[in-house]
Design a binder for these strands. Structure first.
Lengths: 338, 338
DNA sequence: CTGTTAGCGCCTTCAC
DNA sequence: GTGAAGGCGCTAACAG
């Protein structure tokens, strides 16, 4: 039966003693590193089962200088985009015997720094890191001690730092092209305050598409707000105060688009008749809103898997020496909101 | 600058040598466990900074028999309910210096067993475990080696196993009472096929409320379907074929309620005028549907925080000896659909 | 105020 | 086919 108090874990020494062999033999029987007599093996097996022995990975890690653990540091686990990344990562790392350690930082620089340091002290074998700026300086400490790093959403690689990202410029372009093709005339963009990172690149793509279509670019139609549902709602309110309100609004991600929808609904606006709304990421909720949300798919699960493969390559030494960069082609997912 | 190849981590020995002191002094200077001369301290600090020393938590964990790590094993990280649990858990554990290790199992019994065993070998200080059946046998192995366990959604405690759960029976009761109070006469319930677990308990509460109100219980109004949006849609279709159709429908969770809304909309029924719809959980999208969804809040974030406090209590020994059970009172979140 | 030393549990080289 | 012993990096008696 279950125990109340704390019980000492049984160690390899206990098993060896009970089985009347040396710990060497137990160790080799577990790892299969060298042959063990059938009779001995059976006896050891039995004792392991009797005692409920579970090897201590701390000790093994200390000895092997390897923890079979990979860290995933993300801004917000409650943004559905990141659980999908986590899922993809676990999909490829799990079968390889690696554990994923997930931490949310709330996009707070101090928390991000603390998280990276924490992971270094835990001697993770690899680090996947995401924040809205995709700032490589945040992970420099890890790269410097030789931990392979993959930066999600980054644009530029560094020695020791690989990058996985959606092609955000292309995403902004195809989204704007889609709206232009649907006949929308005044297309606004709700983005973040930072001038770098995915949000900024999506705006770049949007401007590119306007230019290609011979449309004027109106700075007043690009509004910068906190990247959150509330931020999206506020930005939408601001857009609705313009003399000429937009007939379509691109939002830097789906969560922000939810906020824009909140405001539209609160104002009694019909979507997409009065104003079209479009997001980025294609999180699950995008298919559940009313109206369902037209968006740009960034295939987060596949990005997570790509991160995993990159990390695995670094860990088993099969990766090329220089830093790698994997870009995901975005695609418009047409639904009802635009 | 960042390094390409693997570099050896610097250890406390390196710091001691470089600073010309013993490792004991470095250790105590780090932990503050005993006074160190100001001059010595300064020198050691400097060396630590120069060398970029990060203590190795594996070694420390091995020595201290404590990892400052807590495992969270959940069925599906992409189900929005669980990231909120994770968030709450991290909220209380983080400030206490504990890391949370999250793993998804897809509700696969084999994966669940593997995850628990994995966490034991990693010598986590505590384990939070959730699956849809809330089966305590899944965590027995951890409890037996003395790891404090909290089971999410469980009904019965065991020695070494605490429980945190929403009070599902009460939830079913207040939901039904709310609808009765609003004047609805024929209240249906869409639930899952299983006769145990949260869905079943919610039906129990619903029946209780009917009885208390002196209303008859009509078995034909309880329909069992797959717990999903499609399942909800199918169940609603079935309800609409009854001779006497319901004027209100309780759905075992919000996703199922979305399906019910789909069918109502497809049939041209007005909600709540023709038929009211109500869910459980209060996930984010409940506020996004048209009409917005009246539901029962289960406060997942707070449940996560409760798990964290329970675990902390076990770890610092301040908890009572016997197993504890924390029930969350559900609350009706009134919106437009009922 | 500081140092020496004995493990924590495991893997692995070397020896039999 | 099997063992003995060293050491991964750290903390905490025990000694000055």
């Amino acid at each position: 039966m279950a125990q109340q108090g704390r019980r000492r874990h049984v160690s390899i020494t206990d098993v060896a003693a009970q089985a009347g062999v040396s710990i060497t033999t137990v160790s080799h029987m577990l790892s299969g590193q060298r042959p063990v007599a059938a009779a001995t093996a059976a006896r050891v097996q039995q004792v392991i089962a009797d005692l409920g022995y579970e090897p201590n990975r701390l000790a093994r890690g200390l000895r092997l200088q390897r923890t079979d653990t990979v860290a995933l540091v993300i801004p917000d686990i409650t943004n559905p985009f990141y659980p999908l990344i986590a899922r993809g990562l676990q999909n490829v790392l799990g079968p390889a015997g690696l554990q994923v350690l997930v931490t949310s930082t709330d996009a707070d620089p101090a928390a991000e720094e603390a998280a990276v340091q924490q992971m270094i002290t835990r001697r993770v074998d690899g680090l996947a890191f995401a924040d809205y700026q995709a700032d490589h300086r945040r992970v420099a400490a890890a790269a410097e001690v030789g931990i392979p790093v993959v930066l999600l959403g980054g644009r530029t690689t560094r020695p020791g730092i690989d990058v996985v990202s959606s092609d955000d410029v292309a995403g902004g372009t195809i989204a704007a092209e889609y709206l232009i093709g649907r006949g929308y005339q005044r297309i606004a963009f709700i983005t973040g305050a930072e001038r770098v990172g995915s949000p900024a690149n999506r705006v770049l793509g949007y401007r590119h598409a306007l230019r290609e279509a011979g449309r004027p670019y109106a700075p007043s139609l690009v509004v910068r707000e906190e990247i959150s549902r509330d931020g999206g709602a506020r930005a939408m309110q601001r857009l609705l105060t313009l003399r000429q309100t937009p007939d379509a609004v691109l939002c830097t991600n789906d969560v922000v688009a939810l906020g824009a929808l909140d405001t539209a609904k609160a104002r009694g606006l019909r979507v997409p008749e009065d104003v079209a709304v479009m997001g980025f990421d294609d999180i699950d909720i995008a298919a559940l809103t009313t109206p369902t949300l037209t968006t740009v798919s960034n295939r987060p699960r596949e990005q997570g898997e790509a991160i995993g493969r990159l990390l695995l390559g670094r860990l088993n030494g099969s990766a090329p020496r220089g830093p790698q960069r994997i870009l995901f082609d975005p695609a418009v997912v047409q639904r009802d909101s635009a």
